[in-house]
């Protein structure tokens, strides 16, 4: 039982990270019907910028939490700017092009960002300095540490905040209108270009936070870390129903738990035939399963796709 509970906690933590990244995919998809494959790279850049700032402030004598906070404060605006620029330079000129064109462009942007990061930060792993003293809190027979609590809390906060923003504010109203029909929304006085830019900026801010959570949790950052994370988050978004905010959150957390349980128990259940080496396979196995049986995702509405 203690193992089960611990796996659930592990899954919840990695799932929270997937959820935040998945929100970025789903936000952009909801409005532009574009799968922004460069989103994973923004997570990576957020992590790298934060680590650079943390590295610079390492000897300043400030408390660890303050240094991380400053890293966050530095990374968020930088990522917002990069998100804005990507949309402005790479995607906006292609807005009326066939849908395959921006998709290929997105993959191109992803490669460009990855290589830029390799040039700027090098090919080596960048490590997260031990700034936070680990503290453990027992839950029944399992335990959760302060970094894990921080990740789950911040993710929940951001999910609630984003949900409020999209469903209860004027900006959210404009976003939803643009999502349903950009032309008509434009005729009703919504500045479609601004809304699209803002969507990218919000998604990138979420990515920056996710980037810091990933480095704080795993202790390292690397120029190609965004690729696999992006792929998993994309899977989570599709799992929950891409374009659907709550679906992305649900899909992310579900995926984290499926992976964790799968890797933890499959070996025992199949008597060693399949083992923990299939951990990554679960993400994609789940994706295929959902695409076959419920193509619109678990929370997606069938036929909600714009014709």
């Amino acid at each position: 039982m203690d193992v089960f509970l611990q796996q659930l906690i592990n899954g919840l933590v990695s799932g929270s990270i997937y959820a935040i990244v998945a929100l970025g995919y789903t936000l952009v998809y909801g409005i532009l019907r574009l799968i922004n494959f460069a989103h994973g790279e923004i997570v990576m850049i957020g992590a790298m910028i934060a680590l650079t700032i943390i590295g610079l402030l390492g000897d300043s004598g400030l408390p660890g939490v303050a240094i991380i906070g400053l890293g966050l404060l530095g990374a968020i605006p930088c990522c917002m700017l990069i998100g804005y620029l990507i949309e402005r330079i790479a995607y906006r000129p292609l807005r009326h092009a066939p849908s395959l064109t921006p998709l290929i462009t997105a993959i191109g942007v992803s490669i460009v960002l990855q290589n830029l990061a390799m040039i700027v930060w090098g090919k080596e792993y960048v490590s997260f300095p031990p700034l936070i003293e680990m503290q453990y809190f027992p839950i029944a027979e399992a335990s959760i540490n302060n970094v894990q609590i921080f990740i789950v809390m911040v993710s929940t906060l951001m999910m609630v905040g984003l949900n409020y923003l999209v469903n209860n504010t004027k900006l959210g109203n404009a976003m939803r209108a643009t999502s349903q029909n950009a032309e008509v929304a434009g005729l009703m006085g919504v500045n479609v270009n601004t809304i699209i830019s803002l969507t990218f900026v919000i998604g990138s801010a979420l990515a920056a936070v996710a980037g810091i959570m990933v480095t704080a949790y795993y202790g390292l950052a690397h120029y190609d870390m965004g690729f696999m994370l992006g792929l998993k988050a994309f899977t989570a978004a599709v799992l929950g129903g891409i374009g659907n905010l709550r679906g992305a959150m649900f899909g992310g957390i579900l995926l984290g738990i499926i992976e964790s349980m799968g890797a933890g128990y499959l070996g025992t259940l199949t008597n060693g035939v399949f083992g923990s080496n299939y951990q990554d396979v679960f993400a994609f196995f789940t994706l295929i399963g959902v695409l076959i049986f419920k193509p619109s995702g678990l929370l997606g509405k069938a036929g909600s796709e714009r014709p």
């Binding site: 203690d2 193992v3 611990q6 796996q7 592990n10 899954g11 933590v13 990695s14 795993y218 390292l220 870390m225 696999m228 992976e259 964790s260 349980m261 799968g262 890797a263 933890g264 128990y265 070996g267 025992t268 060693g272 083992g275 923990s276 080496n277 951990q279 990554d280």
Partner: peptide, 21 residues
């Protein structure tokens, strides 16, 4: 326990938890 990962992985929490048990 005989567990596996791959040379790109960063998350080992699931296998470590299973080993801890």
């Amino acid at each position: 326990a005989r567990e596996y990962t791959n040379d790109k992985a960063v998350d080992f929490t699931a296998i470590i938890t299973s080993i801890k048990g």
